[in-house]
Structure formats: structure tokens, C-alpha cells
Design a protein around this nucleic acid. Sequence first.
RNA 1: GGCCCCAUCGUCUAGGUAGGUCUAGGACACCGGGUUUUCAACCCGGCGACAGGGGUUCAAAUCCCCUUGGGGCUACCA
Length: 547
Amino acid sequence: MPETVVTRFAPSPTGYLHIGGARTALFNWLWARRTGGKFLLRIEDTDLKRNTPTATAQVMADLRWLGIEWDEGPEVGGPNGPYLQSQRLDIYNRYIRQLLDQGRAYYCFETGQELDALRAEAEKQKKGFVYRRPEQLPTDQDAERARVEGRDVTVRFAMPQTGPIVVDDVIRGQISFDPAELGDFIIQKSDGFPTYNFAVVVDDYLMGITHVLRGQEHLMNTPSQKALWEALFTDRPVPQYAHMSVTVSDAGGKLSKRERPQTLRTALKATANVDFDQLAQVGGITADEVRSFLAGDTTPDMPAIDAIAKHLGVHLPEINIVDFFHSGYLPETMVNFMALLGWNPGDQREIMVLDELIRSFDLSRLTKSNSLFDRKKLLAFNTEHLRLTSPEKVLAHFKAYLRHVESPVRGADDALLARIIKLCDGARTFEDIERKSVFVFLDDEQIAFDEKAVQKVLMKDRALEILRQVRDELAALPELTEQAIEEMLRKLAEARQVGLGKVAQPLRVALCGTTISLPIFDSVNMLGRERTLRRIDLTLERFKAHG
RNA sequence: GGCCCCAUCGUCUAGGUAGGUCUAGGACACCGGGUUUUCAACCCGGCGACAGGGGUUCAAAUCCCCUUGGGGCUACCA
């Protein structure tokens, strides 16, 4: 390949970076890195109504979290800027003018309603809707008059009707389309902005894009874009297209942002007594909005959804990249897992780090069929990467996670955090690690007792009596090292002719309130004598009636 | 409805371009057992697929056609 590879990721800033978008970005980035080419980021913000002010910043933050850096684009600049389409209007207008002058594009004056009616008519006749090109193309004067009259003016591309359009796809081979079925599509909207199909072609040309890896949902746009490209640019052929499989959700259907609110709604419906006022307060919305949401009429913003879910302890399916961060996943995991959604290295490797991914990546190994997003497998991958990633990196990511969830654990120093991580070898996510270690950072009086744990452990046999003895032995130990604690507990268990569990579990529940925690010897050691004894005393006091 | 894409274990997939070496391999999940101070992790074992029907061929998971099923697109969204 004599020519340097140039790929791009071109999201529209309508929300957070979605797992599907992230995968597209990753593949383009991987291909550029593999070939020593360039990867650029372009923001497709040509729809004023849908743009969200913070989306671009969020998308960039998410890409960086994943380790995907762009060689050209917003914030890093480059020779082909600006990289925001909303700032390139004059460029698009020049090309639209050119097409108009050449008679390869023309004005239209239909309203949305008129178009809808035409579409409904086509539907009735069981045919696909194709805009009928007028015999006589409207002039600039016609357009001017329409504008003065307050009518909508759009510009359509006059699709050449010469033979089938054949798209060469790296993954799918040659795909043939009938231009008559494609029709004359709009290239400039009545607000003066270009449509996606037009802006993409101009920018891909001007930015020297050589390879376009994108989701299969763009396959139908490709013949239109190819026709436009060939009408506009003759010195260079269209880029190499590769239309990747789509990722679908394990809940069935497409992976969609709607899944999160839907999950919450379902959980809410299953709840006996919904306290609307309280939920409204935690969500920062009104009680009526909560009712409307429950009824399925409206959907509040994502932060409100997230806050209510967190308050209720409902786990929402992760969809956006930030969701995975919030759930305690490593970026290394996400990158590895996404790479395997529609691609594989051709051997039996699955767990791979970034460098390995770059070295192994190849267009010829992209798969054709859609894949389901399997969260259980993702969990298994995260477990592996938690082990594989350097302790320094894991520590840094853990700290970021703790800060975000505002865990009491975030107050710990690096040495303690590192020790906790090490003790949690085999944990699946940071959420697990946090849950197992949070008891150390709670006030002794703050420990909440899990009802099941109390029944299963504290209310059994002579658990409280054993706990009292453990307390006394602990008080008598000269030093609370893990070894000393272990030795003491084992001796005690042996003397009583019971398993270590019978001794360790009551102690665990006394210290943490649950049966799930860090290893017990370390738990005691971290807490120290005073706090350990205090927690045991509080437990004995609280449950003495049952003893 | 129209146009387009796809089809191997429950899931992700290897194998398909050069048909035999595939009684179809791996991973996750699941089931059983082991280990164990909790959860997880870990170890051993097991279950489990070429969507259906026609061709082509000595031979088809692999090539062709049809059916069925799944997905995408069908906007002055991207």
C-alpha cells in the first residue's frame, strides 16, 4: 500500500459515547496505528436541534479514557481543519454552488408535510418512496422568490441514472444498487446546513480519508455517497469502505440508550410502595415527572435516571462508555472486548492488551454477522485485565472510580489502596473491591447489618458466645498481625472442635455487617484493636437478647 | 411494503477465499466435582452447533439456488 492510511471517527454530538460508536472509533484507530497511518476525529454537528452542548467534550473524554488518541481533530488541530462541520459551512456551500451550476443539483420547495404525504402514497402502493425530479429544474430566481415568500428551500442531488452503482466493501465484497431506487436525496437543508450524506463526502475527500470503517447501518448511504463523490471529485476514487456488523443487546434487539430508562421503569413497576416525592428529590425532578415516567409517557434525563437507580439500588445495563467506568470496568477490558465484537486475530487468543491488538489487527478478519453484547463475558474479561494490568495503572483507575462514586474508600492512601486491590485478587470489577473494603472506612456505629447475614451467621448455634471469646482473645493478643490473628482463630476453632468458618464468620459479620468482605485476618489488622473490639461490643450489645 | 446485509454450540467465534486432515476447535455461560475464613478467583470433568430443503461433486460446514429466520436502512437525523 503506497498511500498512507487515513481513517476517521465522525460522531455527532448528541450524547455520550455509545459502545457502538466506541467500537467504530477503536477499529478505525487500530487500523491507522497498525499501518502507521493517521486517525482523525471530526464532529458532525450539522443538526442544530440534536446537538448537546457537552457531548463533544464528553465524547473526547471517553475516547481518551479508552486510550484512543486522535492525530488531527478538535483540541489537537491539524492541517485539514476546522474539524467541526458547523464551522465548514462556506466549504460545503462552494461545492453545492458548483453542483447547482452544473445542473447536478437542484432546488426543491416541498414542505415536510407534503413529503410525508408523498411517502404515505408510495407506502400504499407498496413501493419505496423516490422523489420525482421535475422536468424543468427550478432556477436561482425561483429559489429566491420562494425564500422571500417564506417557503422552505432545500437542494437535492440529481442522482445520475446510469447503470447500477457498485460499492466495493472490504468485508462484504461488491454490492450493487439501483440508482433509480436511491432517488435524489437532499444535500442542503432549508436552514442552510448540509445533510450528513453531503458533508461526509466533502470532508472525507478534503481530509484525505482512505478507509472508512463504520457500522452496517451506513451501508445504504454508501451508494449515494459514492455517486456524490464521483460527481464532485474525479482525481481520487472513493475511500475503501468496510461496513461492520452491528452489536445487539443481550436484552434482545439493538443496543440502545433506551435500555437504561426501561430497566428502571420495570424495576419501579415491581416496587410495592413508590415514594414519588422522595424519588423526585433524589432525581432532581418533580414528582409528576416521576409519575409520568412510570406511566411510560416521558423519560427524564440520564442523570435523573442514574440518580434514582442508584438510590433504589437498581443496576442499569451499561450502554455508554461512561457507564462502564461507573460500574468499575477497566478501559483495557473495554478495548479488548470491543475489538472482539466483529473481529478476531485468527488464532485462539482472546485476552489481549492494546499493543497486541494493534499488532494483530487486520481488515481481512472482520466478521460479517451481527454479534450480541455479552455482559457476562465482559465481566470475565475484566477479571483477567485486573490481573494483567500493572498495579500502578489499576490503582490510578481505582482511585478515579472511587472519586466518581464518592466512596468512603477514597480517603485511603495509596499504600492501603494497593493492599486492598492485592487482597481482592479475582475480583470482577472495582465495584466488587469497593463493596468488600468499604467497611474499613465507615464509622463503627455506621455498620449496617445485613438481615440475611445476621440470620445465617449470628443467630446460629453459639455464634455470639464464640464471638465473645474471640473478642477476649483479640484483646489479649500482644500484636494484631495477620499471622497472630490467624493462629489465634485456628486454635480457638480447634479447641471448640468446629471449622474455622464457625469462628471467622461471626467475627466478619460483626466487623462488616455482611458475609462478604476482605480476608478476615487482614480485616482485623486494618481496623486495629480498638475499632475491632468496639465493633464486636456493638454487635454483642445489639444482639444479646438472642444470645 | 421496498431496498440491502447476514446465518457454525445458549453467547462470541475458528474452519469457508484453494471442498477431503472437521466423529467441527477455543472462550464465556451453564451443570457436576475439588479447593476454601466469606464473596470471587482457581483446578478437574461434563453438556452443547454446521437453520431447513434442493442441487454440483467420488466427497459439502465449506460452492450454487430456494425457503425460513435475524438485522439494517427506508428523514430537511447522523
